[in-house]
């Protein structure tokens, strides 16, 4: 087991109190596995991504552990966590287009970054990885402003994985891209895994369709908790959690014309995490909610590798 997250709680400090963005999340990730992490905005998926590498100033680690390759990550201790960043855990940020210092040539920036982490730049290796994602080596002698958005994104992908991290967090990397570029990025990420540049990957997205193409496992989150986690095919073809079903139903299908129904989406909105209601958090929007849903549903393994947190599943 490469990554083991147990009962992780991360809260945001706000003026009104603590927002429980991650409220007791547990899951595992095997070596070589790509986990697609889906959910609505505010469900805690980006918070999870950040928690695994760098908590920002407003975030507080309120409990739970993260164990990577048998070592517990000191996620609450910014200083000690530094040893793991880049070497063990790395990140392709949501803002990859603006992640490179605009006034440094890329070669110089990468060299300085690596040197600061005690590594000497292996130019040949860097160039071969760049060519793998279709970047010519001249890019190294350019400034970020001279690259297109897609090139910057791929450059960041190469830089982030340069030290062969065990875990890569790809946070909404495809959100700002058009469909054809999305596909190229997804393929590049798969290539990184297959070449062994990264052992396992968490692919954070709200795009269920794209996730299905690259992820081995998909985890659906709702209101800071796990809703359902299963192999990608199972999630798409035989979801058990009502939220997952509604999420899938709200996706348009290519080539299918519905004369009798409109795409609906999911009525209502997620509960406030400032003071979340007791019991199942999806209860208010759930079409099949019943009496028992006033109790918190435990995460149960309904089939091999298929976890659902729902009384009705």
């Amino acid at each position: 087991m490469s990554l083991r997250v147990s009962e992780l709680k991360v809260y945001y400090r706000t003026l009104k109190g603590e927002v429980r963005a991650l409220d007791g999340l547990s899951f595992g990730l095997a070596d070589g596995e790509i986990l697609g992490l889906v959910g609505e905005s505010g469900c805690g998926k980006s918070t999870l991504g950040k928690s695994l590498i760098r908590l920002d100033g407003r975030m507080r680690h309120a409990g739970g552990t993260v164990v990577l390759d048998g070592e517990e990550l000191p996620i609450a201790d910014d200083r000690r966590m530094n040893d793991y960043r880049f070497h063990q855990v790395s990140l392709i940020p949501q803002y990859a287009m603006s992640a490179l210092n605009p006034t440094r040539k890329i070669r110089r920036m990468v060299t300085e970054l690596l040197r600061s982490r005690g590594v000497t730049l292996d130019t040949a290796e860097l160039e071969s990885r760049m060519s793998q994602v279709g970047l010519p080596r001249e890019v190294l002698d350019r400034y970020p402003i001279e690259l297109s958005g897609g090139m910057k994104q791929r450059m960041v992908m190469v830089v982030s994985t340069l030290l062969d991290p065990s875990l890569l967090i790809a946070d909404e990397v495809t959100s700002a891209l058009d469909v054809s570029t999305q596909k190229a990025v997804a393929r590049a990420l798969l290539g990184f895994r297959d070449s062994g540049y990264v052992k396992s990957m968490i692919f954070v997205t709200h795009d269920l369709a794209l996730t299905h193409h690259i992820a081995d496992t998909i985890m659906v989150m709702y209101a800071g908790r796990l809703a359902e986690k299963a192999p990608a095919d199972v999630i798409v073809k035989a979801p058990r959690h009502p939220y997952t079903r509604l999420l899938l139903d709200s996706l348009p299908e290519v080539g299918v014309r519905h004369t009798d129904r409109r795409l609906t989406g999911i009525a209502g909105s997620p509960p406030s995490l400032l003071d979340p209601p007791a019991g199942c958090r999806f209860r208010d929007r759930c079409p099949i909610a019943g009496e028992e849903c006033a109790e918190d549903p435990p995460v149960a393994e309904v089939a091999a590798g298929h976890y659902v947190a729902c009384w009705k599943a």
């Binding site: 760098r54 803002y95 603006s98 992640a99 210092n101 006034t103 440094r104 960041v156």
Partner: peptide, 21 residues
């Protein structure tokens, strides 16, 4: 607080380098 500073920090770059940039 800009993106490139956050990225460097996420990759564990020392504060010295980030402040220099």
């Amino acid at each position: 607080e800009s993106d490139y500073s956050n990225y460097l920090a996420a990759l564990g770059a020392p504060a010295r380098l980030i402040r220099k940039y």
